[in-house]
């Protein structure tokens, strides 16, 4: 009986998370478009709803009702699988991300996360790695030259930055002494307890990796529109096409920003000035600041060439993370 209750609880919570994430991702598009608009000195979406508030819904309807064309020459199974492979792992990372401490509501203890496993960080990395397959499959299954090049480019970039990302996270893990995201947050108490002060190198590497993983400028080589039309999703249309940017640009960016907040900015820790809601408000504020920072970079910089990106990954980022690990390890040993 207890097992059933737990299962139902988790299913309900997962549904809330997934639906919430869908809605959030839709509105993140609006955030990005508004942000980009104001960076570029134009208003952005303005006419659908108040200041474009209904624009994401209109967009979603548009994408959903578009004709879904599957070209004759594609490998159909992989072609369908690829868009799921890109989307599902990105949203799966949400399963291990805590948004705050458990709260009591109507006598029930509600945990604002789906599960708190002790290897949460490793799981998050693993899910992130799976999404590479989505890109490679999309490029390969399209059986066309531009998607192929785009897919290979993205794969090259992702492999380089997955390694750097993995090693960058070793620093905060060592400081916290745990893989559990909740424990990592709990290890960062107070303003100067946040790991950003102790792990600036790791944070820089992490930021670069996020930009590369989510395919944002200066690392958006996989869909450099001037070179490759639309990169690996050139042959896609309708919602199958819509899933790629949704997964990459919004859900992955959101989730990785959340991880950044947890690992470097002390998660939901902050002065209790908003009462019971204060952990959530702090968490979301920090999250959106990181997200906005990524957008800011995206809408300002030109893009690197793919070989330059991988060069940075292997020749600069990876040695930096090693240096970081050694320094952190030394400090941890000295401090005991």
């Amino acid at each position: 009986m207890e097992l059933l209750a737990v299962t139902i609880g988790i299913v309900i919570k997962s549904l809330i998370f997934i639906i919430g994430m869908f809605l959030l991702a839709a509105y993140l598009t609006l955030v990005e478009r508004k942000f980009a608009g104001h960076v570029q000195q134009r208003p952005g979406p303005l006419h659908v709803g108040f200041h474009g508030l209904l624009q994401p819904i209109a967009d979603a309807l548009k994408v959903l009702t578009k004709e879904d064309i599957v070209p004759n020459f594609v490998d159909k199974k992989l072609f369908y699988l690829a868009s799921l492979m890109a989307f599902v792992p990105a949203i799966m990372i949400l399963a291990v991300i805590p948004f705050g401490e458990p709260i009591k509501l109507f006598g029930l203890e509600i945990k604002p996360y789906i599960s708190d496993v002790n290897v949460a960080l490793i799981l998050a990395l693993a899910f992130g790695s799976i999404s590479i397959y989505g890109v490679i499959f999309a490029g390969w299954a399209s059986n066309s030259k531009y998607p192929m090049i785009g897919g290979l480019r993205k794969a090259a970039v992702l492999i380089g930055y997955e390694v750097a990302l993995g090693f960058a996270l070793v620093g905060p893990i060592m400081l916290a002494g745990s893989f559990s995201l909740r424990e990592i947050v709990e290890a960062q108490q107070g303003f100067f307890g946040a790991f950003i002060w102790y792990q600036p190198l790791a944070f820089v590497v992490y930021l670069f990796s996020v930009l590369a993983e989510t395919g944002r400028t200066p690392f958006d080589v996989q869909e450099a529109e001037a070179e490759l039309v639309a990169g690996y999703n050139t042959e896609y249309s309708g919602m199958k096409f819509g899933l790629f940017p949704l997964a990459e640009w919004y859900i992955a960016t959101f989730v990785l920003s959340a991880l950044a907040v947890i690992l470097f900015f002390g998660g939901w820790n902050g002065p209790h000035i908003f009462g019971a809601l204060s952990p959530y408000i702090w968490f979301l504020t920090k999250l959106f600041l990181v997200f906005m920072f990524l957008l800011w970079v995206h809408w300002t910089l030109p893009r690197y060439r793919v070989d330059q990106i991988t060069e940075i990954a292997w020749k600069v980022m990876l040695p930096l993370t090693f240096l970081n690990i050694f320094i952190t390890a030394g400090i941890v040993i000295l401090k005991g």
Partner: peptide, 16 residues
């Protein structure tokens, strides 16, 4: 040229 290099914003600035 900036658009080709991925810098979208310059494009709108110059068009202004």
């Amino acid at each position: 040229f900036a658009l080709d290099l991925g810098a979208l914003t310059i494009f709108l600035y110059t068009f202004r």
